[in-house]
Design a binder for these strands. Structure first.
Lengths: 149, 149
DNA sequence: ACCGTTGTAACCATTCTAGTTCTAACCTAT
DNA sequence: ATAGGTTAGAACTAGAATGGTTACAACGGT
């Protein structure tokens, strides 16, 4: 018997990386130049994708956009914006957790009764470890790293 | 204009938490009792889901299953199995990365040309931070934590 | 030979992603 | 005022992954 099933890892959406790309562009461009179409050209995607992401960044208070006239600008300095801020901004669903845990375990079973709570603790700790690492990198540092390549 | 779009976070599959549940059951049950149907009863899902996951755990060298006769047993001691081992086992696609990065950025743009490499470094660091935290928890410690609740 | 089990193919509904088209609203310059 | 470029976002699509189901073959002890 040979298995052919390939299961792939669920990955975090490119929304996040596109959002970082977008903010980097806004940071290094003169305000009025940085239109949705211009950003879309650099990211190489459809302008609506950029507008959707900019909408999230706006809700998170990271950018200001001028309807009509065009162009976006940062509401915080690049050294005040961390990758965690961006991560949170584009995953608008605030309190959702990275790890899903199956529900409705059988409470008549000693394992089923306890597993959810125990796992919750451990997986949350892993998520926090990741987020803390994201929080260590600012937009400014990321942009500076461009020059080192 | 009012936005009604709700975007949700892409989460890591419950395969992972079900796999941990499964291994915990195998660890605390007499070998022959622990059939796929029994595990499915504790997890409260379809037995095929469990068989699929056990197949992955088998490939990862974590469990041994007896076809025909039934029942599964651990191939390592619970203190030798970490959550990271399980995480890797069920996400069979080993080297895939947690974070996706958009591709095909415009190389004529100074940001587009550099963002991928710079982000890659940072996001990988965040992923490693998470995985190291998972590696700190063994199956044994998890099972022991049941009693503390 | 029977029966419960494992292994797995095949299929399905649901959800999310990333992209598209289209339209309305907005602002500035002419 | 109006034309042109822009933002805002609704509505739709194709594709992929998840979690579940049914069905059936292979296995092995009784």
């Amino acid at each position: 018997m040979v298995t052919t099933v390939v299961m792939t890892l669920k990955q975090i959406s490119t929304r996040f990386s596109i959002a970082v790309h977008t903010l980097s562009l806004i940071a290094v461009s003169p305000a009025n130049d940085c239109t949705g179409d211009y950003i879309a050209g650099s990211v190489n995607t459809n302008p609506v994708i950029i507008r959707r992401i900019i909408g999230m960044l706006k809700k998170a208070g990271l950018v200001d956009v001028r309807p009509g006239v065009g162009g976006a600008s940062l509401l915080k300095r690049p050294e005040e914006i961390t990758l965690l801020d961006v991560y949170r901004a584009v995953h608008a669903a605030e309190e959702k957790q990275l790890f899903r845990i199956h529900e409705d375990s059988n409470i008549d079973c000693p394992v089923g009764r306890n597993i959810e709570q125990s796992l919750q603790t451990e997986l949350l700790a892993a998520q926090v470890a990741m987020e803390q690492r994201l929080a260590q990198t600012t937009l400014e540092r990321l942009i500076q790293s461009f020059h080192d390549q």
